[in-house]
Design a protein around this nucleic acid. Structure first.
Lengths: 341, 341
DNA sequence: CTGAAAGCGCTTACAG
DNA sequence: CTGAAAGCGCTTACAG
């Protein structure tokens, strides 16, 4: 392996001069700089990451803790991971991706051993066991997902409450008076996936204010339960004129159920979902939906974390930021069936 | 941060003794060992990864280079990444995941700087520009996907040729004489995705041997082109009694097209795909298929790489290993329509 | 069974 | 504008 000493010898300067030329931390004469670059090029020198980390206490690596639950639909995760990885690279960081089941333990390992300069937690639950260890790690951290306690970390999430209100407002304005709402799987609630009840509670409250009838139930995650649950819902409340689905698996399974039942959207039924554009494209979903913006959330987390890693003072107080939901109209909502034009 | 020196002081021994106690590289008296463990526990010591890497030239990190193409269907990638990450962790390694567009450059960065002990390349193309730099890096490497030149690296892939022959044999045995074959997107071929033609060529050859008529065409990746292409194929060769689909997006889009056309499977049409169990579950695909075993491939790559990193001598000559395809019967193939029982 | 010391390859005050 | 030296936190021959 070629070291900074080899470069120094080839360029006829000291190792410190090479180091300063590399970092730009002090002025180097043009001539010296050129001799050094030439030597670096010829020898093919790349600084040793471990040595650099040891000397600077900086690894230029971000730890990314992902978490998969069997009660969630998997393809969603990649939509967060890729933008995070790209944004990190743009900022000069690499990603150490950890999928270990025991999140707190993994967190302790990578922070205590100084493998990373900071950590991003994905898919954060209300009582997420990773949050406290992250706070105690002494490393800056950014979360995607809202935990119960919010101090000390930069937190980003979609405003699920506002998303629910937007959807209810939208349907109410179209004249709908009876709505069926499908939430994530019940397990998501019981293990503390706060997005589930944040959306649900806000939808129920808003509907109540308008005096709308709303039928709420939990959804499934796997076939054939998904199809059965959709059919059950449609059978049970045939007078509902709108279907709001906050559940990836259920909305992905909806087109085939509706086509089998010859239900026309939006003529017979209005449908609104909550999913990202990419997800919609993947499953060819022709439904109006609140955009979940995984790329925005991921990039915001990286940006905040990078600032805090580079200059903890300048970064100021940690923020809790909700991304404003946007309704993407794909034409799947219309006036209540029977409404005169 | 607590260092090995702090532990040594607390335990009343030298730093080297602590180090040896940690590594087990020399016998330590029971009493000393216990004093050391107690000190480690009390102080909460974790060895500094950078310092250890510098001293040992080992990082215990595997570089994972993933690559996304717009002509491929994205959810497939995660099926490789997760098992690889889990298997690596089981072997004591962490994963540095790199998604950079410029693969060769990323590879050079992480190997030259000694950030990783070895590298796994995912989704390897026939003339993959990452393969030669990996060979030249001096680090062991394992590939998932078959490149043109195979020396020096452990290579794992599904036996696509055998997969094609199994499918054709299966359909031939059921009496089918006219088959439609849908390949990946044409772009996959032109950029050197060898799995596309390895499957296609073998299928055509086998069909020719049996004297079967086979209609082959490339598929699409995005809606609405996917649906249109499926309908076009069904319109163009209505006398085909079997459909073989080697294209994730096309097979995911098939159920809705068939149901819209009221085509019954397998009564009117036999269908065979090539996809993993997870993928089939995700899209609720009721089709008999060759299992692509992404988890097996990923784990095999990790296993080979770990052996080679731990003991390059003992690992022997690099291998090229094809995973034997298995046909998972989901009941979507039957005798040619009109065949008497 | 244990310790003192050199060395891994960088960075950065300190000195000139 | 540049160099010599100390130090980051480990591991591992070398010595006893």
């Amino acid at each position: 392996m070629v070291t900074i000493g080899d470069v120094a010898r080839a360029a006829g300067v000291s190792r410190s001069t090479v180091s300063y030329a590399l970092s730009g931390n002090r002025p180097i004469s043009l001539e010296t700089r050129e001799r050094i670059s030439a030597a670096i090029r010829e020898l093919g020198f790349t600084p040793n990451a471990g040595a650099r980390a040891l000397a600077t206490s900086q690894t230029k690596v971000i730890g990314l803790l992902v978490q998969f639950f069997s009660d969630e639909f998997s393809p969603a995760m990649l939509q967060y991971v890729l933008p995070i990885s790209d944004a990190a690279r743009d900022a000069g960081y690499d990603i150490l991706m950890v999928t270990e089941k025991d999140g707190p333990r993994a967190l302790k390992r990578i922070t205590d051993s100084n493998m990373v300069d900071g950590v991003i937690l994905l898919n954060v639950a209300h009582d997420d066991p990773r949050v406290d260890p992250l706070r105690g790690s002494g490393k800056p951290g950014a979360l995607v997902g809202l935990p119960r306690s919010t101090g000390g970390l930069d937190i980003f999430d979609l405003d699920f409450g506002e998303a629910a209100r937007m959807i209810i407002d939208h349907l109410h304005a179209l004249g709908h008076r009876e709505i069926t709402l499908i939430s994530p799987h019940e397990h998501v609630i019981s293990r503390g996936g706060a997005y589930a009840w944040r959306f649900r509670d806000a939808a129920l409250e808003r509907a109540a204010r308008y005096g709308l009838r709303i039928h709420a139930r939990y959804g499934e995650v796997q076939q054939p339960a998904v199809g059965a649950a959709l059919n059950a819902v449609l059978d049970e409340w045939p007078s509902s004129t709108a279907l709001v689905i906050h559940n990836d698996a259920m909305i992905a399974g909806l087109p085939s159920v509706l086509s089998a039942r010859s239900v026309r959207v939006p003529e017979d039924l209005s449908v609104v979902g909550i999913f990202s554009e990419d997800f919609g494209r993947l499953f060819s979903l022709p439904y109006t939906a609140i955009e979940t913006s995984p790329d925005k959330l991921g990039r915001a987390a990286v940006r905040a974390l990078v600032e805090r890693m580079q200059d903890p003072e300048a970064a100021g107080e940690p923020v809790v930021r909700f991304i404003a939901p946007e309704l993407t109209d794909r034409g799947s909502t219309g006036p209540t069936p029977g409404t005169p034009l």
